[in-house]
């Protein structure tokens, strides 16, 4: 089955937690488990940014994490798509003021797809990944 041309190959996602509350984390993991099962399309979480096509970033980036986020971003091979998952990575959300945060994420690294919600539902996360696939296709066509 090939529902869209974008799903003609496996898409690997690296999940990077930058100080999120774990709410997004469990929804991301819930999204890869049998009820939603994106692995039938080849979408899976990988353990290293060097293997990833997509960076899924959550959290409001505390000071200790900023450098690590930049390093992981640099380690991900091009073309890559960055997904910002969760409201606190977009605008701070409930952590709108703090002395120890360097966020939001797009203040640190460029973001392509935003998934709102605190946390977003697994369906929304999958929808965001599909958006990322589309963007990745465009990038690859553009880069070629």
């Amino acid at each position: 089955m090939k529902p869209t041309p974008a799903l003609n190959r496996s898409l690997w996602v690296f999940h990077l937690n930058t100080g999120s509350c774990n709410g997004c984390e469990i929804e991301i993991v819930a999204a890869i488990t049998p009820r939603y099962d994106p692995e039938r399309f080849g979408i899976k979480l990988v353990g290293s940014p060097r293997h990833a096509d997509v960076l899924m970033v959550t959290g409001p980036v505390p000071k200790k994490m900023k450098e690590r986020v930049l390093r992981v971003y640099a380690q991900t091979p091009d073309p890559k798509v960055v997904i910002c998952c969760g409201t606190c990575g977009e605008s701070g959300g409930v952590y709108y003021d703090s002395y120890n945060l360097d966020g939001p994420i797009d203040d640190v690294i460029p973001v392509d797809v935003y998934i709102s919600g605190c946390p977003p539902r697994p369906e929304a996360i999958l929808h965001g990944v599909v958006k990322a696939i589309e963007k990745l296709e465009r990038l690859e066509r553009g880069a070629a």
């Binding site: 409001p60 701070g92 952590y95 709108y96 360097d102």
Partner: peptide, 25 residues
């Protein structure tokens, strides 16, 4: 001076241009 208001951070301007031409996107 140490407090960062995350909600008022706007889209950063010092970003390099997107790797694709803007038009199709």
């Amino acid at each position: 001076s140490m407090i960062k208001n995350l909600w008022e951070v706007k889209r950063p301007k010092d970003r390099p241009a997107p790797p694709l031409p803007e038009k199709p996107s």
